[in-house]
Design a protein around this nucleic acid. Structure first.
Lengths: 118, 118
DNA sequence: TACTTATATGAATCTAACACTCATATGAGC
DNA sequence: GCTCATATGAGTGTTAGATTCATATAAGTA
């Protein structure tokens, strides 16, 4: 069991360790973006459609759609279409508690992270 | 309160929104690295010194030290010196539960993240 | 003291991952 | 057919970061 390929179960599929790390990379890479983090923090307050997000962040619709696509791909958000609007909402099961933990961590380490080296 | 600069409290200091996002970026950027994730996952099993980590990951000591420095700066790990050895251990308060949540998330979304577009 | 082991740091280089933007597509409602 | 809402694709420039080398510090040991 500890020799050879390590495999991880994801849903019904088996994922190699290499693939898992690739997924991690995409997942966390999604969060290294001010605009996507702002979208997440906005959606923590409740569901919003694309126009609302665009207006709220004072940015451009195309950029928002690109960001939402990546957020959705990584499971940060879910979407729901109503007429010509598409509403996005936070993944309540994992992402909300995760962001709450991040807040907690940041309130303790933010200054440390920002201060130069060491 | 909602107009003008938003400020966040971190420990005893006040942090502007801009700085907060900078910290987020550094924090998550730390996780977009296979080697650092491997270190974290290794330390989830218990404390290890630098040589042990280096051996376990079959890599080079310099690289490990660089990674540990960043992990420490961001509050992922703490260290404790014993003689000429330095032991690193996971931050139990926030990072362990955070990684547990990530595991949970990954077990549901990993395949989705890996599959091409959409 | 000098030597070895353990760990950290600094600097330089090379590269890949993004953000951003433009142009366009799709699709709903009117 | 037109407008609004949203998505997609492709191209480009920028930058963060991985990696490596050379060296520093610091503890233990002979």
């Amino acid at each position: 069991m500890s020799k050879g390929h390590k495999c991880i179960r994801s849903g019904s599929a088996k994922i190699s360790e290499k693939e898992l790390y690739k997924a991690y990379k995409i997942f966390f890479g999604t969060l290294v973006s001010e605009s996507r983090l702002k979208i997440i923090n906005l959606l923590r307050k409740g569901k919003k459609n694309v126009s609302e997000i665009t207006k709220s962040l004072k940015t451009d619709q195309t950029a928002v759609s690109h960001d939402l696509r990546r957020l959705k791909k990584c499971g940060f958000v879910h979407s729901e279409t109503r007429g010509k609007f598409r509403y996005y909402k936070l993944n309540e099961k994992t992402i909300r508690p995760l962001m709450d933990l991040i807040d907690k961590h940041m309130s303790a380490y933010c200054i440390h992270i920002l201060r130069g080296k060491k």
